[in-house]
Structures are given as structure tokens and as C-alpha cells.
């Protein structure tokens, strides 16, 4: 298993290299000139040239990529063009809010989502099933932006129970976590339900029931455990999306996270920050997939890694 893990990590490196090249080229090919953004609309051509030279943007793209790669391996990711802070200084303080929010959203969404799915599957075709699926479908259909604003109007403005934004206290996590997690809760709920329904038709579940096992044991030990692999796969993909896709919740609840930083940096054509962020998101996705693969072995010891 340890060997497998190391092999997987090693195989991620060439993948990241390819991603870094694609990201670099794409960013430099989208229209928009950072030198012009910094110098300002009223700047003359000469002023813009001076800035371009300062940023090294007048060199051929491949040479610039070479500098970037050299920096990447020596730990120097360059400076943000907005205010001269290093890229690491710019990104580091944004990590905590996004990660904290992702984790809190994921925890409640996973628990509630899976519970909803199991209940709906067990009570298939009955009232509880319909209620569960109405909740799930609402979670998918309601745009998170709108949900966030409504939660603020209800719980902050009208009831004055919770703060409108920021991450200063545990209470401030509640509304953004609900906003971020609603969609995932819904996806996991729907997915758990359909997987469970399939598993519950399997012969071994019927055998378990025939043996006279308690229904809860049948559901949890036989049906749920065998559905878990697929549920973990979907959950893993969702977490990956959460980290990079938290921009809506971060905007509505004024949270200084990675999503907002990415959007701001793209608008400012802050190439170095955008590159670093995209590479980080790619690495994070690869890492989560790796964790999911490792979890397969934990869930089902029959799975062997070669």
C-alpha cells in the first residue's frame, strides 16, 4: 500500500507539469494586457512599455515559462502585480477560510445527504421518500447565490440570530456552510438513494433478510456498506469542486477565500497568482482522488493495489 501511494504521488508530477504548461499558455493567450492594467487607461504607450519590461512580459512566452518553472522548483513563485506582495504571501492567508468552510460544509452535507438517501431508499415509495427527495431536489435547484442572500435576510436581518458574514465566530460559519453544502447534500442524497435501491435488490441482501437479521443491520451492514464505494467516489469529486468553487458563498458572505482571490486575480490579469492558484487546485484534485483510491481499500479489503 505504501509503495502504491508513493507510485501514485510520483505519477502525479508529470501530470502537474503538463497542467502547468497548459495553464501558463492559456492565461497568456486570453486577451488583456497586465501592463496596461497596471499602467492605467490614460498611460501612454511608452509608460506601458516600461511596465511590460519591469514584469518581464516582453520576453518570448517560452522563455517566460522557463523562468516560471525555475521559480516553481526554487520555491519562488514571483510577486503579485497588484501590490508587490509575493504570491505565497498573497495566497497563504486565503487558504484557511476556504478550507475551514469546505470542511464544515462537507461534514454536514455528507451526513445529512447520506442519511436522506438511506431513509428515502428504505422507505421507497412512501411519504418519507418523497419528503427526502423534495429536500434533495430543492438543494440542487436553488442557486447558492440566492440561497445565501435569503438566509442573510431571514437569519441576520429579520431574526438577528447570526452575523451577515465574515468568519469571526463559530456562528458565522453556519450560513455560508449551509449555502455551500446544500448542493452537495442534494447530490449525495440522490446518489445514495439510487445506489442503495440497487444494492437492496441484491441476492445477499435478500439472504440476510431471510436469515432473520434485524432490518437496521441489513440496511447498514449489508446494503449501505456495499454502496459506500460509489458514495465515496462522488463525495471525493464534490470536495474537489468545493475548494475551487466556493466563490459564490465567499462573495455573499464576504469571506476572504481562494475563490474570490481567483476571480479578482483573473480580472486584474495577475498572471502569477492565477497560475499558482490553478496549479494548487489541480494538485488538490489529484490528491483527493488519491485519498479516494486509498479509501477503496479500507472499505473493501478485497481491493488490492498493484
Amino acid at each position: 500500500m505504501g509503495k502504491y501511494f508513493c507510485k501514485r504521488v510520483a505519477s502525479a508530477i508529470p501530470l502537474l507539469l503538463v497542467i502547468s504548461f497548459v495553464v501558463f499558455m492559456f492565461i497568456h493567450m486570453i486577451p488583456g494586457d497586465p501592463a496596461r492594467m497596471i499602467a492605467g487607461q490614460d498611460a501612454t504607450k511608452e509608460d506601458v512599455e516600461v511596465v511590460r519590461e519591469q514584469l518581464g512580459l516582453n520576453e518570448p512566452l517560452l522563455v517566460q515559462y522557463g523562468h516560471y518553472m525555475k521559480g516553481l522548483f526554487t520555491g519562488d513563485l514571483g510577486d503579485s502585480v497588484k501590490n508587490g506582495k509575493t504570491v505565497v504571501e498573497t495566497i497563504a492567508p486565503r487558504l484557511k477560510p476556504t478550507i475551514m468552510l469546505t470542511v464544515s460544509a462537507m461534514i454536514w452535507a455528507t451526513i445529512i445527504g447520506i442519511a436522506l438517501g438511506i431513509i428515502s431508499a428504505v422507505f421507497h415509495g412512501r411519504a418519507l421518500d418523497y419528503i427526502g427527495m423534495i429536500i434533495a431536489i430543492s438543494g440542487i435547484s436553488v442557486p447558492s447565490f440566492w440561497l445565501g442572500l435569503e438566509l442573510i435576510q431571514g437569519f441576520s436581518v429579520a431574526l438577528n440570530w447570526l452575523p451577515t458574514g465574515g468568519l469571526d465566530s463559530w456562528q458565522s460559519y453556519i450560513l455560508p456552510s449551509i449555502t455551500m453544502g446544500a448542493g452537495i447534500m442534494a447530490v449525495l442524497g440522490r446518489f445514495t438513494r439510487s445506489t442503495m435501491l440497487e444494492t437492496m435488490r441484491e441476492d445477499y441482501v435478500r439472504t440476510a433478510r431471510a436469515k432473520g437479521l434485524k432490518e437496521t443491520l441489513v440496511v447498514m451492514r449489508h446494503a449501505f456498506k456495499n454502496s459506500l464505494i460509489e458514495i465515496v467516489t462522488v463525495a471525493g469529486l464534490q470536495i474537489g469542486g468545493l475548494l475551487s468553487g466556493s466563490v459564490m458563498a465567499e462573495t455573499v458572505f464576504s469571506i476572504p477565500g481562494l475563490g474570490r482571490l481567483l476571480v479578482d486575480s483573473i480580472n486584474f490579469r495577475d498572471y502569477k497568482v492565477v497560475q499558482a492558484l490553478l496549479l494548487f487546485f489541480a494538485a488538490e484534485y489529484i490528491f483527493i482522488n488519491l485519498i479516494v483510491d486509498v479509501l477503496y481499500g479500507v472499505i473493501n479489503p478485497k481491493i488490492r493495489y498493484n
Partner: peptide, 18 residues
């Protein structure tokens, strides 16, 4: 000085007194 990008959230902050 708090940075609150969304207009609806800014208005809400004024209403709650934040």
C-alpha cells in the same frame, strides 16, 4: 473597513447595525 463584495450583504449589514 470591511470588504463586502455583494451589494445585498452590504445592505443587510447596515440593517443589522454591523
Amino acid at each position: 473597513i470591511k470588504e463586502v463584495p455583494e451589494a445585498g450583504s452590504r445592505t443587510a449589514m447596515l440593517q443589522t447595525g454591523e
